[in-house]
Amino acid sequence: MKKRSLPIFLVLLAPALAWAAPNPKLAIPEFTGLAQKATESVTITLDPALLAMAGRFLDGNDPQDAATQEIIKGLRGIYVRSFTFDKDSAYQQADIDAVRAQLAAPGWNRLVETHSRKTRANVDIYIMVDNNQAIGLALIASEPRQFTIVNIIGAIDLDKLHKLEGQFGVPKLDIDLSKTPAPGAQK
C-alpha cells in the first residue's frame, strides 16, 4: 500500500515544488503608452525555441557570433524593453516600479546598484541564484531619456557577458569583475 501511495504523493507534490521553485522570469509590461511616446523602442521576446533558432543562424567561425553562441547556449529566454525619448522625464519611475517590485521576491539578489550624478543614470543589476548557479538576471537602467529593462533566464555566465565588451561596438573597459561583490551581498 505504501509503495503504491508514493508515486501518487510525488505526483501531487510536483506542482507544489514547481510553484515553490524560484522563477527568474519577470512579468514585464508591454509599456504600450510609452512606446507611442518614445522616439525609439526595442521590444525583444526570445523564448527557448527562438533562441535555439537564432543559434542555428550564428556563424561559429565569426568571433562575434561565436561569443554570442557561447552565451546563449545555456539560456532559456531573453526579454528586453528599451525606450528612448526626445526629452527628459518622459517616463515615470512608477512605470518601472512594477518590475522593480518583482525583484523583491525571494531568490533575487541585488548584485550592483549604481547611480551617476553626472549622467543621471541608475543601473540596478539583480541576479537569481539556485544551487550556486545563476539562473536569472534582471537589469534596470534608467537614464533621463532612456530606460531599459533586461530579463535573461537560464544559466548565465557573467564572465562571458562581460567578455562582450568591445564587441557589438561597445568600447572595452578595463574593469576587474572579481572586485564586484558576491551575489546576495547587497540584500
Binding site: 527562438l50 550592483v112 547611480h115 531599459t148 562582450l164 568600447p171 573597459l173
Partner: peptide
C-alpha cells in the same frame, strides 16, 4: 531565424551596454 539572430545580437548589445554603464560607474 535571421530575425531571431538579429534580436539576440541586439538584446546582448543592449545588455552589454548597460552593464558597461554600471561598471563605468563602479570604476
Amino acid at each position: 531565424g535571421l530575425e531571431a539572430r538579429r534580436e539576440v545580437v541586439e538584446a546582448l548589445r543592449l545588455t552589454s551596454q548597460k552593464l558597461n554603464l554600471a561598471y563605468e560607474a563602479v570604476k
